[in-house]
């Protein structure tokens, strides 16, 4: 909800503090999540995240939450989904170029960042393009896996020296490039 979203930016400092503590707890519970299995937890976590972050931030479930670097203003609510700062079309009153009735997500973002930390360090992080393959997935579980270096973040084993005999009957990778 728009009004709640604006409230969240006004309370960015408190929310960020709460999230930092929450993240520590969720990461510490990794052995438990691992026992249950990350696959099984995905659906209930998605419901939970959608409900809480949806209520507070109008979260769009991009699956790669950047709220701590965007002053608690969700960048996916920007009609251009800009993740690094405002475009050049912001109106003189600080409202959005595309939706004139809405405050610019990034004018809000910078205001939230000022409340979070005076140095504005986190907001200077360059965000890369969205990974569309993980849209809708749980960003919290992803953070745990990232911190614990498991799942998709597990360190890749060093490349084995090329086998002398080519592995027989290795199936050709399906799809890519083959069908013309």
């Amino acid at each position: 909800m728009y009004a709640v979203r604006l409230w969240s930016v006004r309370h960015a400092k408190g929310l960020n503090r709460f999230y930092q503590a929450f993240e520590k707890v969720v990461v510490a519970l990794h052995p438990l999540w691992n026992k249950i299995g990350y696959e099984k937890l995905e659906a209930p976590f998605q419901v939970l995240e959608r409900a809480t972050k949806g209520f507070l931030f109008d979260c769009q479930m991009c699956g790669q939450c950047a709220l701590s670097s965007t002053g608690m203003s969700c960048p996916m609510n920007c009609p251009k989904t800009l993740r690094n700062g405002p475009c050049g079309g912001v109106r003189p009153n600080g409202n959005c170029e595309v939706k004139p009735e809405m405050k610019c997500v990034w004018v809000q973002g910078w205001a939230g960042a000022e409340r979070m930390d005076g140095n504005l360090e986190k907001i200077k992080d360059v965000q890369i393009q969205v990974n569309n393959a993980i849209k809708g997935k749980s960003a919290w579980l992803r953070v745990v896996r990232m911190t614990k270096k498991v799942g998709e973040f597990a360190p890749k084993p060093p490349k084995a020296p090329p086998a002398k005999k080519p592995v027989a009957a290795a199936p050709a990778p399906a799809g890519e490039g083959k069908a013309a």
Partner: peptide
Amino acid sequence: VPPYEHRATHIGKK
């Protein structure tokens, strides 16, 4: 255009 005071920092990011 707004946010005026942060435009330079934003360019720093670019």
